[in-house]
């Protein structure tokens, strides 16, 4: 999850040199240097480089991945226009073959994404104080975008989606069945349908000295109930060991107050809680899926194998969350 340098991922210098040359062609830059790979998501490669003295980030679809870049560049542009802090889109290569696979290039934003450092280092004291304010503001602005302005975003019922994923994985978890039962019985009346970031949490936020410098990783953006983003941000796994409910950094009250101030819309705490329960279930199901990536041989890794034995942490979290609420 951490964005650390992974020079071992770089297969050959020749491959990197060829990519640098392609990038300089795309940007019309005299010199591309310091090209190095960062850890990326399951379906993306992320690279950082300098071109003529400025720093950029390349996101390229991993070969063999279905789905391309989808709407990510246009969502990024729309978010920027509405005041959400995002990296500046420099080149939309979603329909380009210049780098073989679809890609986009953004201007690099400086800061830190590693949760442990953000939670502990002295350099982020002010950022920690401002976190709920910034998160509430960024989400309120994102959710204010007229959905008619962006086409092609997925619009899927999230309960149905994860029900299907769990059935596909075919690993029995009685706890998750009990929680699906609860989710169906307590589903909030969703009043709004907006763009949802889909993975708004530490790790996907570039944190500067004063707060959130940029919201990253728009890969999972979709249409849905905006409270999904607030609930996901409060899932226990995203507190990274911290005690405070919002990213281990702040309180529900501070997050909701900022969201209300910037959106003019009152937050229904029960709806956020429902999404937090679904988010916890969802993370548990993703853990099963990560272990199956190892077990099926797609990617052999003892780290992925270990994640399979973390499913019970999510089950435990769900019992804690729903105690007295069943």
């Amino acid at each position: 999850m951490a964005r650390t340098w992974q020079s071992s991922d770089v297969k050959t210098t020749a491959l990197v040199d060829a990519l640098a040359s392609d990038l300089s062609g795309v940007l019309g830059a005299r010199e591309v240097s310091n090209l190095r790979r960062l850890t990326g998501g399951a379906s993306r490669e992320t690279w950082r480089f300098d071109a003529d003295g400025s720093a950029f980030v390349l996101q390229r679809v991993r070969p063999g991945t279905i789905g391309g870049l989808k709407q990510e560049p246009s969502v990024l542009l729309m978010a920027a226009q509405h005041g959400v802090p995002v990296p500046e889109l420099v080149f939309d290569g979603s329909a380009s073959t210049a780098l073989t696979e679809p890609f986009m290039i953004v201007r690099a934003v400086e800061g830190e994404t590693i949760a442990r450092k953000i939670q502990r280092d002295d350099a982020f004291g002010l950022a920690r104080q401002n976190f709920c304010r910034d998160a509430g503001a960024a989400l309120a602005k994102l959710h204010s975008i007229d959905v008619a302005e962006v086409s092609g975003l997925e619009n899927e019922d999230q309960v149905v989606r994860y029900r299907d994923v769990l059935d596909f994985l075919n690993q029995p978890h009685p706890t998750f069945e009990l929680v699906f039962h609860w989710l169906r019985a307590h589903a909030p009346e969703s009043q709004r349908r907006t763009i949802v970031h889909g993975d708004f949490r530490l790790g996907n936020l570039m944190i500067g000295a004063e707060g959130i410098a940029a919201v990253l990783d728009w890969e999972l953006a979709h249409l849905g109930d905006p409270m999904e983003d607030l609930g996901w941000l409060c899932v226990k796994a995203w507190r990274f060991g911290g005690a405070a409910p919002v990213a281990g950094l702040g309180t529900y009250d501070d997050l909701f107050a900022s969201y209300e101030q910037h959106s003019g819309i009152a937050v229904d705490a029960d709806a956020v809680r429902w999404w937090q329960v679904l988010g916890t279930l969802k993370w548990g199901i993703i853990c099963i899926s990560q272990a199956s990536t190892h077990l099926s041989g797609v990617m052999r890794s003892h780290e992925l194998a270990a994640i399979g034995r973390r499913v019970c942490e999510n089950e435990y979290d769900l019992f804690q969350l729903l105690e007295g609420e069943w």
Partner: peptide, 12 residues
């Protein structure tokens, strides 16, 4: 819930 506690006693 009791079985979840057992799983955690081993896993973490």
């Amino acid at each position: 819930y009791a079985s979840v506690i057992d799983k955690l006693q081993v896993a973490n």
